[in-house]
């Protein structure tokens, strides 16, 4: 029993080999493979070719929520419990900017974290894994049916994988 689909798992030592393998896989129409790297890497990211992460939208919406929350909260609360000093106007924007700023940061950061969690969970794929991938190897897992297995194995091997194994 395994928690991931059947497929081929390759471990690469060299980053250019791995990038080459990813490009070849994409040329042949594979899309649902998973790449593991110990560190974020531009070459790999470019080869995989994702669109830019939508997390920035979360940050923006979180920040905007924070700033409006700060404005509404300070304005409403000071009007709801007015502290009259020398007949000066009750709501006073300048000191409230501090609160608005802090809430912008707080909600922006919170939403960013939430965004990462949501997007990572939503794009999670069951895939075979090897502990070397957080250490010093680059991993590529290609889920495929039994009849395509040899071709994928061949492709990964010729790209320069250090080890290729079939994961049932």
């Amino acid at each position: 029993m395994s928690a991931h689909p059947a497929g081929v798992l390759a471990a690469f030592r060299y980053v250019d080999d791995a990038a080459q393998a990813i490009r070849s896989l994409k040329e042949q129409g594979y899309r649902d493979f998973t790449v593991y790297t110990p560190v974020p890497n531009h070459e790999i990211a470019a080869a995989v070719g994702h669109r830019i992460s939508p997390v920035r939208l979360w940050t923006l919406i979180g920040g905007l929520t924070g700033v409006s929350l700060g404005l509404l909260m300070t304005m409403w609360m000071s009007l709801d419990y007015p502290i009259l000093v020398g007949g000066k106007p009750i709501p006073s924007l300048v000191p409230y900017i501090v609160i608005m700023f802090e809430l912008t940061i707080l909600c922006g950061a919170g939403a960013t974290i939430l965004g990462v969690l949501v997007h990572i969970l939503r794009n999670r794929r069951a895939a075979a894994y090897d502990p070397r991938f957080t250490d010093d190897h680059i991993g590529v897992f290609v889920p495929c049916a039994t009849d395509r297995r040899d071709a994928v194995q061949q492709l990964l091997q010729t790209s320069g994988a250090e080890e290729v194994r079939v994961e049932a």
């Binding site: 593991y36 890497n41 995989v48 994702h50 920035r56 940050t59 920040g63 957080t134």
Partner: peptide, 25 residues
Amino acid sequence: WRGTDQQWRHYTKAYLYLAALATPL
């Protein structure tokens, strides 16, 4: 965490935005 392409894709961007928020903070 396994360091997949999807994970890094969101993680690296989020880290950048967090740094950008933490700096004025």
